[in-house]
């Protein structure tokens, strides 16, 4: 069992890097897009908020697999050439963006409207109000659900193997195809995912503690 795991490790390295890359890109892209659209949803007029609302709700209502296959088959059909890797990343990022939008909107609306008024009354512009008053307070509400969603992203990245991207999951299956020993490999895979997410948990707990300390109410 242990032998089988040690034998497999070198074959999994490249796949592991792909898994990290997919997760990293998805987390970064969804954070950036989710922040922008979440802020627009929270403060913007209805006509621009409505399509964002529809996007966020739709994307979260579709099973992730369906979303990935839709993008994978759909975009090339629309003459948008996309490698399997980027198709899968785009689908995952869209899905995550839907979540981040919701988390951002929730965190912002948790702040008392009087805060925005006080910030206006000392002459801050919209961006300054966000940076100096809204975000520092909203971050406490934002972090716990967002960190959850980051771990979800790492787990969800395994789905890219379905469109032929050789990530950690796919690499595991390739090794199994040669050794016909599924159990040790799946256990090894589980351990790697657990290790990554455990590292994230530790990092995030530190982050949360720091903000809880500096942003005491």
């Amino acid at each position: 069992m242990i032998d089988a795991m040690i034998y497999a490790l070198p074959f999994l390295w490249d796949g592991f890097l792909i898994t990290l890359a997919v997760s990293g890109i998805v987390v970064a892209a969804s954070l950036a897009l989710g922040l922008v659209f979440g802020v627009i949803l929270a403060f913007g007029p209805v006509w621009i908020g409505l399509p964002i609302r529809v996007f966020a709700d739709t994307v979260r209502a579709i099973p992730l697999i369906v979303l990935i296959f839709t993008v994978y088959y759909g975009l090339p059909a629309l003459q948008v050439p996309l490698s399997p890797f980027w198709a899968a990343v785009a689908a995952l990022a869209a899905f995550k963006t839907g979540h981040v939008i919701e988390i951002v909107r929730g965190a912002i609306t948790s702040i008392h409207p009087g805060q925005m008024e006080a910030a206006k009354s000392i002459g801050l512009t919209f961006l300054e109000r966000l940076v100096y008053v809204v975000f520092p307070q909203a971050v406490r509400c934002f972090l716990p659900p967002w960190i959850n969603s980051v771990t979800d992203s790492v787990k969800g990245s395994a789905l890219v193997s379905l469109v032929g991207v050789v990530d950690l999951m796919m690499a595991i299956q390739q090794v199994i195809g040669r050794t016909y020993q599924p159990m040790p490999l799946y256990i090894l895979g589980a351990m790697i995912y657990i290790a990554v997410n455990a590292a994230l948990s530790v990092a995030s707990r530190r982050l949360e503690a720091r903000f809880a300390a500096t942003v005491a109410t």
Partner: peptide, 21 residues
């Protein structure tokens, strides 16, 4: 422009509205 004008008008609120952070 609104921000610049508001900077010249101070406001004190019933519920204080201090920045808690």
């Amino acid at each position: 422009a609104l921000a610049r004008l508001r900077a010249d008008i101070g406001m004190v609120f019933q519920m204080f509205n201090l920045f808690p952070h």
